[in-house]
Write a protein that binds this DNA or RNA. Structure first.
Lengths: 212, 212
DNA sequence: TAGATTGTTAATCGATTAACAATC
DNA sequence: TAGATTGTTAATCGATTAACAATC
């Protein structure tokens, strides 16, 4: 069994990868250093070296890291060598935006199924995928062995859908519903609530009543 | 000057508030405890008490915290007693979804301006707001003294727009573009990249090639 | 009163950083 | 070679938790 890596380290790996891909796209060099990467990301070079060294020795003293090689190593570590099928539940505005998001394609994911409970949405084609009735959710996810779900359903529906997803074998859920979800501990839940993010930043703002 | 609070503590306050609002909505009690709140959020009761105690003594021994009172205290701490005007840049699918998001209304924010550079979008009405030409961005944000921006523009445009926003006085930016933004240190930037979140979770998935 | 729960201290735990020998 | 940069150790820094007196 691999020694266990802290979540916070795992959380940084995709950030490293994204910046490495940018470096590769810029195409100015084939090599980078922990210092250069750290400067671009606002992270200390020591932290980057330490994080990476948990998985292997990817660099060379004196020259640093070969960009494409490191990208590929990270891809393997993060299990992104094959495309992951993703199920999207909720075909409203946000679901629509995500179904059409081009950023998934080349970064390891594809929305292969979309569900909704509203007859207005059911049957629509979204980015080549037909919106299905949520009644078929369980059966379909199970049959396709889909492990990753994105939730863009109303708050009231989120827990109920989560239960179905978990039952059907999903173990990774990215949710946009502003509610804490309950699920077994082997299920990974990642939250995205724009209001929470704005509220965090509001703390650092001068109150409007005090503004000049 | 108030003693300085770690970012990570600030980050939890909106989470506490969201759950307290839910408790208030459920309407079963007027009071809660750090233990109950912690259990609902998967956070230790000690942490909740310690976080809150940085800002004052909001509870009572034996009975806990009065829900509505604590909500109001948190609202004040986070500067959410008045509605913050927000500018949205990028009127594509995602911008459209955010412009129509009902969750802003009662949680302290309102999208009051929308900008895009595409004639296809300019002039459209989104949730009562007319999409303006991004050429007017600087002038408009400055005139309205808007401090908070949401970015849903293509990756290539994100840095350029950020520069304009900062110049116009924006100090809080929530960005959906998958790129690290450069800005002065007094500017707060909050990132939301669904792919990064999915990639983090992919680490914990069994590789598809190994699946039964 | 007795039970419950706070606010806070001290102890523990974990993450970050500085520094440097190794070496490309 | 000399300069640069890694991987890693030890030191530092910061966050979390356990425990409990105070008290509602």
């Amino acid at each position: 069994m691999t020694n266990t890596i802290p979540d916070i380290v795992i959380a940084r790996l995709p950030i490293y990868m994204r910046e490495l891909c940018r470096l590769a796209d810029e195409g100015e060099k084939t090599t980078t250093s922990s210092q250069e990467l750290g400067k671009r990301l606002g992270i200390s070079s020591a932290q980057i070296r330490k994080d990476l060294s948990r998985f292997g020795e990817f660099g060379k003293q004196g020259t640093g890291y070969h960009i494409n090689y490191l990208i590929n190593q990270l891809r393997q570590i993060l299990h992104l060598t094959e495309e992951w099928p993703v199920v999207l539940i909720g075909a409203g505005y946000l679901g629509h935006a995500l179904a059409h998001y081009h950023g998934f394609q080349h970064r390891g994911f594809r929305v292969v199924r979309v569900f909704d409970n509203d007859p207005v949405h059911i049957g629509k084609i979204m980015n080549g995928v037909k919106v299905q009735d949520v009644k078929e959710l369980y059966k379909s996810v199970l049959a396709d062995q889909i492990k990753i779900a994105i939730l863009t359903v109303p708050t009231e529906a989120a827990q109920e859908i989560t239960d179905i997803l978990v039952e059907a074998g999903v173990t990774s859920i990215l949710t946009y519903a502003p509610i804490q979800l309950k699920a077994p501990s082997f299920v990974n839940i990642s939250y995205s609530d724009p209001v929470i993010q704005l509220q965090q930043m509001a703390y650092y703002l001068r109150p409007q009543s005090e503004q000049s």
